[in-house]
Amino acid sequence: MKREVAAEIVDSLKDAGVDFVATLTEANLHDLVMALGADKAIHHVPVTREEEGIGICAGAYLGGKKPAMVMMNAGFLLSTNALATVCIHPGIPVLMLIGHSGGVGEENAGHATVGALTEPVLQAMHIVYEKVGRFEDIRPTIRDSQMLARSSRRPTAIVLNKQALR
């Protein structure tokens, strides 16, 4: 991810009211994770496993924070039970920013299956999501996805494709 894209995401999260972000890094997310860690206005919690991050975000929400989770799609797939039991069942919102390995533009054959499963699993879980690649779409999509998460008391997702991640 280019540094200006990472900076735009961090600034858009703050604009949308997000003040607490759990992350699990990956090569494509490195600049975003480092930028989140350096930002004084965001409480950044690096986690060891993505579903742990979903639990931390849910707890932070109960304590009055506006949380988001940054992870790759492999981590989203790992988090499905956590999302179902901790967020969707009681009605707790978490904005998820999900890097889309194995989506359009993927050069690594090893990511193809996880890439193909990502959207069907989001749909199966009835999680509303938007796919973002263009720079100018980042800010309005983060604002609107966070708005829906808060008003619906449900997790929402932004799937960052290769255009955003490169």
């Binding site: 607490f20 409480h43 919690v45 579903e51 742990e52 991050g53 979903i54 639990g55 931390i56 975000c57 849910a58 707890g59 932070a60 929400y61 109960l62 304590g63 009055g64 924070k65 949380p67 039970n81 956590a82 039991t85 901790v86 069942h89 009681p90």
Partner: peptide, 24 residues
């Protein structure tokens, strides 16, 4: 009292809550 309906994330929920409310 918050009764979690998930096996595994009790410690993580409690961490999120503790970080959000450092005076509680």
């Amino acid at each position: 009292n918050y009764h979690l309906q998930n096996l595994g994330l009790t410690s993580s929920m409690a961490l999120g809550l503790a970080l959000a409310l450092p005076r509680r």
